[in-house]
Design a protein around this nucleic acid. Structure first.
Lengths: 229, 229
DNA sequence: ACCTGAACACCGTTCAAGT
DNA sequence: ACCTGAACACCGTTCAAGT
């Protein structure tokens, strides 16, 4: 049984699953029609039988990730209505975040897509339903949705981590830089210094991104609770 | 004076400026070493004398945009301290947003960079200074910075616009979709319906992104004000 | 010092052709 | 129905060479 002959047939699903695995393992820039084909032991051109072009591939990959989120959310609770609106949304956003943490490239990819899977609309519809069910006007629900930004999908798309200014000193000139920084960036340095008591995992930086996510989330939820009619 | 012979010499600055213009006009995907060279009436290889490689080009482009923001902020007020911390930050974030609106590709690009211009640290340092000057602990200032996300740089990196579900109906099957949606997405449709009284500019969608930006901003500022010591 | 031509490796994609 | 080979246009980049 020669390995290259006994391949199970390709399918859109198999291609997309392999694409996600490849992106997880090698980064999104490694997700190339040709490299993906190699991974599937197939010629690059074979992919075009299952996907129209690379855009369709990327759309499909996004679709796959969103499906993961949908699955995670549907696993949350069998019956609804019991919880208060804040814990209900909190559960959902954190479940989404849990999925996103497995696919660090997904936020950037999602941001680059011009079309979004239809199930996302259903998800947002449900969020609005939760809000109005809790007494929000549709107008406030709309503003809330915007305020949430991409929290419902599990990420905050922080544009950069200020941690790299003080946390990850790895260059040889790092100490000199730090000394210089104490003069030009006193507040930044003071902030880092004030936080470095509980550096449990220095390799991951001194910043617990999970608690930051939840802080932002709760800040918004509390603010909305106050605006609620 | 043959036009192709009488070119002023290239420089890093001129290349970067041309890159920004090209990205503004044709989109970031059109920003290619070869196309940029054409724009500058030069061979692609000439660019490599001024920039190490394409990564350096993109870093330089980000640098250029950040410099625009810095310039806009420095134009805000000659003397400081007068305003309350919220209006001070508000002014800065809105100034940054004004710049970003001219470069719609910038958020995505910034998100893709692994290194950030040094002046951004100075900017963040100033923000922290404003916060602690207003009575924030460094710990709370840190959380505030994370809650702000990319607001200080002028954008909310919303991952998608739910508006496209109801606002921009341009397909032929749009009406049918809308009818179907009223059943499967009742809350989303109700929200759109509840908002369409003040559709001042229907071409831009029914959603005023400026007021959404400010709503989120104020929600966070008010929440932080309440947490302040 | 500044720019170029030729060349290489790698992309996405088409199209006619194989089984 | 499903896959492939050859080919094309376009990319970033190197390197030796021009002025």
């Amino acid at each position: 049984m020669p390995s290259k002959a006994s391949r199970k047939p390709l399918s859109r699903q198999r291609v997309l699953a392999a694409a996600v695995v490849l992106a997880d393992a090698q980064g999104i820039q490694a997700l190339t029609m040709r490299r993906l084909a190699v991974e599937l032991h197939v010629e690059a051109m074979s992919l075009y039988y299952h996907l129209r072009d690379k855009e369709a591939l990327l759309d499909g990959v996004v679709e796959t990730v969103i499906a993961e989120i949908d699955a995670a959310i549907s696993r949350l609770d069998t019956d609804d209505g019991g919880e208060d609106w804040r814990t209900r949304l909190r559960q959902r956003f954190l479940a989404a975040r849990h999925v996103m943490l497995r696919h660090p490239w997904a936020p950037g990819l999602l941001g680059s897509r011009r079309t979004i899977p239809a199930t996302v609309y259903a998800y947002y519809n449900e969020i609005i339903g939760t809000l109005v069910g809790a007494g929000f006007s549709y107008h406030l629900a709309h503003r809330a949705l915007h305020a949430f930004g991409s929290l419902p999908l599990g990420f905050t798309q922080e544009v950069f981590s200020p941690e790299s200014a003080g946390g990850n000193m790895e260059d040889d000139a790092a100490e000199a830089d730090l000394a210089a920084a104490t003069e030009t960036l006193p507040h930044l340095i003071a902030m880092v210094a004030a936080e470095v008591h509980d550096s449990t995992d220095p390799t991951l930086g001194w910043c617990d991104s999970q608690s930051k996510f939840e802080f932002t989330l709760d800040l918004l939820l509390d603010g909305l609770e106050r605006l609620r009619g």
